[in-house]
Design a protein around this nucleic acid. Sequence first.
DNA 1: CCCTTCTTTGAAAACGTTGCCAACCTTCGA
DNA 2: TCGAAGGTTGGCAACGTTTTCAAAGAAGGG
Lengths: 342, 342
Amino acid sequence: MAAPEHPRMSDVAERAGVSLSTVSRALRGASGVAPKVRAEIENAAAELGYVVSRGASSLVTGRTGRVAVLVPFLQPWFFGVALAGMNTTLRDAGRDMLVYQVGDVGELDDYIHSLPLRRNVDAVIALALDLDEREIARLDEIGLPVVFCSQRVKGRRSIFIDNTAAAAEATRHLLNLGHTRIAYIQSKDQTGFSWDSRDRLKGYQQAMADAGAEPLVLTERSGREGGARAMGKLMSVERPPTAVFAESDDVASGVLQVVRRSRLAVPGAVSVIGFDDNDLAALFDLTTVSQPVQEMGEHAARLAVDLVDGGAAQSDHHVRLETAFVVRHSTGPPRENMGLHG
Amino acid sequence: MAAPEHPRMSDVAERAGVSLSTVSRALRGASGVAPKVRAEIENAAAELGYVVSRGASSLVTGRTGRVAVLVPFLQPWFFGVALAGMNTTLRDAGRDMLVYQVGDVGELDDYIHSLPLRRNVDAVIALALDLDEREIARLDEIGLPVVFCSQRVKGRRSIFIDNTAAAAEATRHLLNLGHTRIAYIQSKDQTGFSWDSRDRLKGYQQAMADAGAEPLVLTERSGREGGARAMGKLMSVERPPTAVFAESDDVASGVLQVVRRSRLAVPGAVSVIGFDDNDLAALFDLTTVSQPVQEMGEHAARLAVDLVDGGAAQSDHHVRLETAFVVRHSTGPPRENMGLHG
DNA sequence: CCCTTCTTTGAAAACGTTGCCAACCTTCGA
DNA sequence: TCGAAGGTTGGCAACGTTTTCAAAGAAGGG
């Protein structure tokens, strides 16, 4: 095959019978081009199948038209949904989306240090990266505007939900149903607790304290497996809880797995609550806290775009999105005098 | 904040006390630079935090260092895993990954027609796009090398699995267990059947024919809901099947949901098989066909990179990856004289 | 009818790299 | 001692845009 010779702007200019500058102005939508001329140029461009070389234009404008998204994982539900939201918004804004998976913090460090982003994107979105102060400072070295999605960072543009309030609400739901022995399952990664995790725990603890109930917190690995292990432990304590609040739907699915294997009824013997409202939640008929993940992605992308376009002054640096408590059938009043031993 | 002045190559040159060309050669890893000088230049670059502007270099080399991935969705398990695979390989090859979600074929057409890719990426990976001949031809207009991942396309570089053989193997498993009334649930999108779908059906039909068994095929929407609907129908036919083969794990999860609601035992009353081995499969203890999704992504990315680097001659244009049949506990011999009426 | 003011256009200088070519400096063989 | 060959280096012209500046033309007021 011959080299795929792309038409250049000068080709369009020649075909339209105008100068290069005029074509540039017309195609960019800049003002100061006679309507008729503009139409002719657009025709010529379309006929030639001309597309501007972003490399060349970014060379002079300093803008690349690209936004990088840094994610710790790609597979889990949360990330797919958030990326989908970002992708929509970015596409509408005429931006391309670059995705970089930075598994652990070390990898992130390497990444930032080698700075391949610098100069090659206009902005960076950190998606659920759960960085601490030091790491955030490191991100700044990149010299680009950064938007945090699903992490609240003081003084930085960020999109987040009120994990504490949402977790408290979920806990109160159980309390109101009459539960008093409510366990909370917290997740811990190799790297430690995420901010989401800490905040949710706080909400649970507050609600329990307000109701004068004794908190019971287990810590396990994240994911389904962690949920299963935690539930296993809970079933062998002296007075098992009548309700379990899992930090995420994934964890809750592990809890449910164990509960079912033990032929215990939900919510008869145990009530279960999750967090996320992911695709498993509906399947398991799980009461949970729904967070607007796609919207979070959209907002983050919009913020990133505005940041690049608008220069400095932006009003809404922080966006707190609403969660919704979704009651399904995994929660109900505790059966009178029993626990798990129904 | 002041404008984020990035250092230029000439700054590095000045600092290292050499010329621009030498810096370019050194940083690019080209030969013909004295080891000592090379080290000095690398030092200078590191100290300045210099990063080459890909825009500028692509202007002269014609290479952008970017690969675009076209996906119909971002959320489902399959895409996250495949993208993760691609991302790893691309990163190792020093390439950036652009992701474009092209919901339906119309959107894809718009996309190709507006050609934002052209000139802005080196290659395109079409991930599970299920294109027909006409649409593939359309993709060619983009004037870039295209790799098909999870779709076999004759004459094009593609990565795929043998859906037909895998489905036949799964069907034989059920036949060998003694089942004869085996239903197959096929999925249909708005756009029609995917290639995967057709091939799997073919495998089922062949295996059934070889065994002299009567095929029973239902067609529903894809996803969990479709599976649930299909199973609902199956439970009310005259002689219900003793086994169900769902086109995907997602569909199988819908089947299981209905089966459980009806308090039927699995595999006692009905055996169920899925396809994919996604994260639900283990949760449901589902017998299924495991496809190496991550590997498919890795291979596709490698192929794309080689295509750009190596120019034309590539030996393995087609890569067929192995599937693995995973037996869990959703399948077993049919109970003697019953069907669903256990 | 001339002069000013806008609008529209074209020419040319960046932007930050790479690649070609010529110049230089060694080293070595004759 | 000189020439040739090989290994390093620097100069300069691209690459395809945008942007500034000045020129040309149209419109309008006196």
